[in-house]
Structure formats: C-alpha cells, structure tokens
C-alpha cells in the first residue's frame, strides 16, 4: 500500500513536470531541455517572495507561480523567438545554453545552500495516514491534487478554449495558423508561459515538501523520459508515461538497488526508443518531422 502511494506521488511529480515538455513540443516542435532549470527557478522565486510577503504566505506562493508564467513567456519573446525558422537542433541547443545560464544565475543570486521555503512561510507538513496504513505528507497529497487539476484544466483548455484550439492549430500547421490570423508569437509565448508555470508549480510544491537546492534540476531531467515514453505530443501519454517511469523507479529502489534510481527513467526511455520510438500515444509521423 505504501508502495502504491509512493508510486502515485512520484508519478504526480513526473506528470506535472512532463506536461511542460509536451506543451512546448506540441506547439512549436522544440524540446525544452531548460525545463528542469525553469522549474527550479520557479521554486527559487518562492524563496524570494517568501521573504518579501512573509505576512501572507498564500500570496507568496501565488505570486511566485505567476512570475514563472511571465518568465516562460519572456523566455520565448526574448530568446526562443529568434530561433523560429532555425533548425530544430539549434533551438534545442539554445535551451541547453539557457539551462546553464539559469543554473549559474540561480547559484549567483541564492548561493548553493539549501532552502526550506515551508519553514520560511511558517507552515507545517503534517503526515496524513491513509486507510491501509499508508502515509503521505500533506504537500505530497497537494502535489497529486495539483497534477489532477492541472491536467484537467489543460485538457479542457486545449479542447474547448479558444486559445487552446489555437495552440493545437499552430502545432499542426504554423503557416496556415498565421494565415488564419492567429498570432503565432502570442501562441508560442503562451505555451512557454503555461509550460513554465506548471513546471514551477511542481518545483514549488516539491520545495515546500522537501526543501530546495540546485539538485532539483535532476528531477526535471528525469521527468523528460516520462514525456517521451508517453509520446512527446500527447498529454494523456505524459500521464501514463509518468506512471510507468515512477513505478519502475520505485520498484527498482525497493527491490533491486537504490543507486539505480537516477538511471531507471533513462533505461525505460531507451527501451521505449527501441520498441516504439514515437511513444505510447504519440503520432508516428513525429519521427520524421524533426
């Protein structure tokens, strides 16, 4: 039972991060390898707002998340916009460079020490005991809820929202979308903003649960196999991929070797690339598009 809860929590983490990869890839065919860093940046925003808004902790969290939304949009408008029309590889390498830049900047601003934003906000983290004697911390439970809400919201938004439809349209055929009067830059910026927002949400909740330092990047990187296993252009796939990766990882830690934890997602990824490179729910044509 505890095992199932652990898997669920880890799956929620990976899923919440992975949807950021999917959003950007789906709309602009760019693999954002700076996603882990952007997510970490979001968590550090909380450190900043936590000291600025120590009166109202909820306010601090909300503002940190909203700032991430803006950061994501700005990353597109000031940087990635210049890479449209360049080769996909150049865009991906740009995100790699951005990641390094953010990593350096974060350490410069906040130093390499560990932070505990929860303590800064004066919140506790009670353990909830579930039926079956499984235990889960409050913020882990919140994380699962956040994942459910975010995915539900994204599904509805992409399905029925006007801008959601536009994001799907731009992802399919950017030229036609532009010719129909859709402002591609706005759509791409929105995708980057939403992606960074969801990533930051994950980062903030993880930081609230278990503290924050620059190793958080690794969690972001490990979530990326989840997106790929499910199919880079499918949100439902990311959900399932996250579950698979989390199950594999928790299983391996429990039954084989805890040291394997950091490689398991990549082993699953390699296996997937051998069997079905376009992922569980992805479209096969994607392989030739990039």
């Amino acid at each position: 039972m505890q095992l199932a809860v652990n898997i669920l929590v880890l799956a929620a983490i990976y899923a919440l991060i992975a949807c950021g990869y999917v959003l950007i890839y789906r709309v602009s065919r760019v693999l954002n390898l700076a996603h882990g860093e952007l997510m970490m940046l979001g968590a550090y925003m909380l450190v900043a707002t936590a000291s600025a808004f120590s009166m109202s902790p909820v306010m601090a969290v909300v503002i940190a998340a909203l700032m991430s939304l803006a950061v994501g949009g700005m990353v597109y408008l000031f940087l990635m916009r210049r890479m449209t029309g360049e080769m996909v590889l150049a865009a991906v390498l740009t995100t790699v460079a951005l990641g390094i830049l953010i990593r350096g900047a974060v350490i410069l601003i906040w130093s390499a020490q560990q932070y505990h934003p929860r303590a800064m906000l004066g919140w506790g983290n009670p353990v909830i005991t579930l039926p079956g004697d499984a235990r889960i911390s409050l913020y882990a439970a919140l994380l699962i809820m956040a994942t459910v809400v975010v995915y539900g919201g994204l599904f509805l938004f992409l399905r029925f929202g006007r801008w959601g439809m536009r994001m799907r349209a731009a992802g399919q055929d950017p030229l036609l979308a532009a010719q129909r009067g859709i402002n591609l830059h706005a759509v791409f910026a929105l995708a980057w903003g939403l992606s960074t927002f969801t990533g930051a949400l994950a980062g903030i909740l993880i930081a609230l649960d278990s503290g924050l330092d620059s190793t958080m990047v690794m969690i972001g990187l490990k979530a990326f196999p989840a997106a790929l296993v499910g199919g880079l252009d499918s949100l439902a796939g990311a959900l399932l991929g996250a579950l698979i990766i989390a199950a594999a990882e928790v299983g391996v830690i429990r039954f084989i070797d805890p040291l394997l934890a950091d490689v398991v997602p990549f082993i699953v990824l390699i296996a997937m690339l051998v069997i079905r490179p376009w992922g569980l729910f992805g479209t096969r044509e994607e392989l030739d598009r990039v």
Binding site: M165, D173, L176
Partner: peptide, 23 residues
Amino acid sequence: AIVPERDKVFPNLSVAENLAVVP
C-alpha cells in the same frame, strides 16, 4: 485572407474547431 493551395485545413481539428480558431 487566403485559401491556400495545399494544407488548407487543420486535419486534427473538427470542422467547427477549424472555423472557431480564427480570431
């Protein structure tokens, strides 16, 4: 507005959605 020669609709969007995406 233009009706292009090739790739003139969004294939994965429904007819109604194809019309609705236009600002």
